[in-house]
Amino acid sequence: MSIRDQISSYRRGEDERRRQTIGTVNRETIEGYLWSIPYLAAFVVFLLWPLVKGLYMSFHDWNPLFPSESTWIGLENYIQIVNDPFFWSALWNTIYFVALTVPTMVVLSLGLALGVNRNVAGKKVLRTIFFSPYVLTIAVVAIVWLELLSVDFGPINYYLGILLGISPQWLTSRLLAMPSLAVTTIWWLLGFNFIILLAGRQSIPERLYEAARLDGAGTWRAFRDITLPQMRNSILFVVIIQFILQFQVFGQPYIMTGGGPAQSTRTIVYYLYQSAFNQQAYGYAAAIGYILFAILVGISLINYFVIGGDADE
């Protein structure tokens, strides 16, 4: 095509784009807005409006039957939370649970991802096995582990009794209850992290490792200088997601321990649930929810700046 023909074709394209413009807005932009309306409607109805309504409720002594009769109390709910020992106990329990689960899941899933990425027999079968627990609901997972950890009839205590002559009280001991919930959670969610990190590892060009081997780099040096920097975004995603999820843990203590023994497994979300539905303190529960929201935002920002660092530079 000659230069003249190219210029003519370009001008025809410009004229066509000009005809597809309505006022000062491109037709594609208008179509994009139209296609996004269903999502925006769902976002407003199911996320934005509950957020605003929850914030409004947190400043009231909320009456769920007659909302118009709710009493404005300002920051009283938040002041009460600061002075509430049960809230601080629930916060500590949640932090303890997060400390048990998140680092363990990240390290184990990274190890599994790097191991399966090697040329090992049955890689597809291993991927299926590692990921399969994640497809279960928390109710199923909790019931399965209730049976496994049963003191009198559970297989874990059965074999521990044969081998070591012990029968730990997994879910009724203050020392063992939270670690037991942590093990349940790790088993359940490890596969999700594994898949994300495996995808991150497989996106690294193999030529980088070949160049490192030519330079005499060993396995540890290649892991430190290539694998970790290249997988930083994947690791950051997994860490932030798991912090957010585990700070909102509810199903495991609700089904497996009921917050016990002696409230040692009562987490923030479980305490929020009790405040709202057991004590009918909906405004107080909404305030707890917003404090949890602030904590999650702060943790996400810390993780982003600490782990993310200058990833984009």
Rank of each mutant, 00 (worst) to 15 (best):
L112P: 07
D225S: 09
A217Y: 14
R213V: 11
G54S: 03
A287H: 10
I37H: 01
F66K: 15
Q246I: 02
R19Q: 15
V44C: 00
F46T: 09
T265E: 09
S234K: 13
W49H: 06
Q274R: 14
E313H: 06
N26W: 02
M105V: 02
L100Q: 11
S167Q: 00
T219D: 13
Q20A: 06
E31H: 08
W170K: 01
Q280N: 08
I244E: 06
Q242C: 13
V249C: 04
I129E: 15
W188Q: 01
W35N: 12
L245W: 09
D15T: 15
V144D: 04
P155I: 06
F87H: 11
S167L: 00
I240M: 07
N193D: 08
Y78F: 03
L296K: 10
L301M: 13
I302H: 12
L171F: 02
Q248R: 05
L91C: 06
L164C: 02
Q248E: 03
L146A: 10
L176C: 03
E16D: 02
S8L: 13
T257D: 10
G308I: 14
F192E: 02
F153W: 09
R232Q: 13
M256N: 00
Y33C: 12
Y284R: 06
T137D: 09
L40R: 00
N117C: 06
F87T: 08
G115N: 12
F131A: 10
I30H: 10
W72V: 04
I241H: 13
P38F: 07
Q274A: 10
W92A: 08
M1D: 08
K123Q: 07
V25P: 05
F43H: 08
T227Q: 07
G13F: 03
A286W: 08
E28K: 02
V141F: 04
Y209L: 11
G74N: 13
W88R: 04
I143H: 09
P133Y: 01
Y33N: 15
G260P: 05
I79W: 05
S109L: 02
Q20M: 09
V183I: 14
V183P: 12
T185K: 01
Q230S: 14
F305A: 14
E76R: 04
G200N: 14
L245R: 03
S9F: 04
M105P: 00
E210N: 06
F192A: 04
Y254M: 02
I3P: 05
P168K: 09
S8V: 15
S180G: 13
G216S: 14
G13E: 06
L40I: 00
Y290F: 03
R18K: 14
L214E: 12
I244M: 07
N117K: 06
T137I: 09
V239E: 09
D310E: 15
I186R: 12
I241Q: 11
P179F: 15
V135P: 10
G289Y: 02
Y56A: 03
Y273Q: 05
Q242V: 13
W188V: 00
A90F: 10
L190Y: 00
V107Q: 07
I307S: 04
Q279W: 14
I186W: 10
S68Y: 06
F192S: 03
V107M: 07
S300F: 00
K53G: 09
P168I: 07
A281H: 15
G115H: 15
L40W: 01
A211I: 07
I95N: 11
E16R: 03
I295A: 12
I95Y: 13
F223P: 01
V106A: 09
P179I: 15
V120E: 11
D225M: 05
P261I: 08
D61W: 09
N119T: 07
A311L: 15
L126F: 08
